[in-house]
Simulated assay, not measured.
Amino acid sequence: MESALPGLAPFERVAAAIRDAIVTGNEWSPGDQLPSNRALADRYEVSLPTLQRAVGVLREEGWLVSRGSVGVFVADPLPEQKRSETLAELRETVSTLRSDLAALEQRVSAIERSDH
């Protein structure tokens, strides 16, 4: 499992990965059934309780629905909250912010030098 989200608990990283897979449509789309909890726990290399906690969070947020004795499905329609950014989009945003910050630091340094 990718640990590109430092500071998050394992269940939060799993929830983010599943949410990302739904938002991008790379794995699941609205109405699709997810693999079993055990299969998902193996896939994300976490314990079954950790996976179940992640699924619980996603159910509370409206991303997933459970159908007793049938399984867990991607909600259809997806929740009407702000669209979550994908991990790739977040990385790109951070990269852009870093370069903008560097440019601002250079401008401030130039202004400070010209004042003295």
Rank of each mutant, 00 (worst) to 15 (best):
V70W: 03
L5P: 00
L87W: 00
R19W: 10
S109P: 01
E80L: 11
L48H: 08
A15M: 00
A88Y: 01
L5K: 00
M1E: 09
F73P: 02
N26C: 09
P49T: 06
W63A: 01
S29I: 07
G71F: 01
T86F: 08
P49E: 04
L34S: 02
D20H: 09
S36H: 02
P79H: 02
A110M: 13
Y44S: 05
S114K: 09
E85T: 09
T96D: 13
R107H: 10
E61M: 09
G56R: 09
R98D: 10
S95C: 09
A15N: 00
R38T: 07
G56A: 10
A103K: 11
A15Q: 00
L64G: 03
L101W: 02
A41S: 10
V23K: 10
P49R: 02
Q52F: 06
S69C: 08
V46R: 10
Q106C: 08
E27L: 13
D76T: 06
R43T: 12
V72W: 02
P79N: 05
G71E: 05
I111Q: 12
V74A: 01
L101E: 08
G62P: 07
R19M: 13
R38H: 13
R59F: 01
V46P: 04
G31Y: 12
I18D: 01
L90G: 04
S84F: 12
A88P: 07
R43Q: 15
H116Q: 15
V108A: 05
R107G: 05
E45A: 15
Q81V: 14
P77F: 15
G7S: 04
A88D: 13
P30H: 04
A41Q: 06
A16T: 06
V108H: 04
R91C: 00
R43H: 15
W28D: 06
D100T: 07
E89I: 05
V14T: 01
L97P: 03
A103P: 00
L90P: 04
T50A: 14
P79M: 06
N37F: 06
E92L: 08
W63M: 07
E27V: 05
S99E: 14
A102R: 15
E2A: 07
L40C: 04
K82T: 15
P35C: 02
L97N: 08
S99T: 14
P30M: 03
L48V: 10
D42W: 02
S95K: 14
R113V: 05
T50M: 11
V72R: 07
P35G: 04
I111A: 09
P35A: 11
G71R: 04
R98W: 14
I22R: 03
R107C: 06
W28R: 06
A21L: 13
V108F: 01
V94W: 08
A39T: 13
F11L: 02
P10N: 12
L101M: 13
Q52V: 05
A9L: 12
P49F: 04
S69R: 15
E61K: 05
